[in-house]
Amino acid sequence: MSQYPRIEAASENSLILYLGAQTGPQTAQRIASLLPLLQNGFAEHLIDLTPSYHSILIQYDCYALDHFQAMAILNAVLAMPESATKQAGKAVELPVYYSEQSGPDLAKLAKQAGLSVQDVIRLHQDAEYRVYAIGFAPGFAYLGEVDKRIAAPRLATPRKRVPKGAVAIADRQTAVYPAASPGGWNLIGLCPTPMFNPTQPPFMPVEVGDRVRFRAVDKHEYIALGGDIALLTGECN
């Protein structure tokens, strides 16, 4: 049986570290806590780190370090006591304007689940989510886990255009679309907080391992927080 953490080669200049067979809050926390330690451990020889659900891809300068030196640094980081790695993963609250106007799949999702629209909105807010991964598009954060009762499969036919700020569910994950893009997730609301701002740091309100909660706001607060009013009048299909 596989033991974790497990290290595999990924390419001539990268290793992939697996922290568990699956993801979960502890794994996400561990990944978040390892990122600064890896940054320090590999120092100027680090090229990039790609954290994801249960793994971290570590890309290093292979002219400076060989595979074995890179493994030795990685093992030394993994051997550091857990206590030194505690305070990772900040709490972030994201406002959401849930309504059938801002969330065109809300009613369908409630019907499928045998719940009221209000229940769906409540269950989406009740959970604390972890940022498991960022990818697909710049700033797209995958948050888990969504309450089983409101988990819903991706649309059979993805929408050609999902608006920026759309709050969405796919299976047991939820996300806020950082920019308008095609997408197959179920749309339940709009978030006025920009998820990706390429012009100034911090470029994203969240990073991998953070804890996220959603808070319902009404239309007025959505607009007051910078939400795009045009999205409430336009077509969303």
Binding site: A10, S11, E12, N13, S14, I16, Q22, T23, T50, P51, S52, Y53, H54, S55, I56, L57, Q59, A133, I134, G135, F136, Y142
Partner: peptide, 28 residues
């Protein structure tokens, strides 16, 4: 589960036809 993709990674999707991932690949 999605994971970080290195330059040159050869992905084998369900249809069994290899894809060599290059500079503009998705990160995961």
């Amino acid at each position: 589960l999605s994971e970080g993709i290195a330059l040159g990674a050869v992905q084998i999707p369900a249809d069994g036809q290899p894809i060599v991932l290059l500079n503009d690949r998705q990160t995961i």
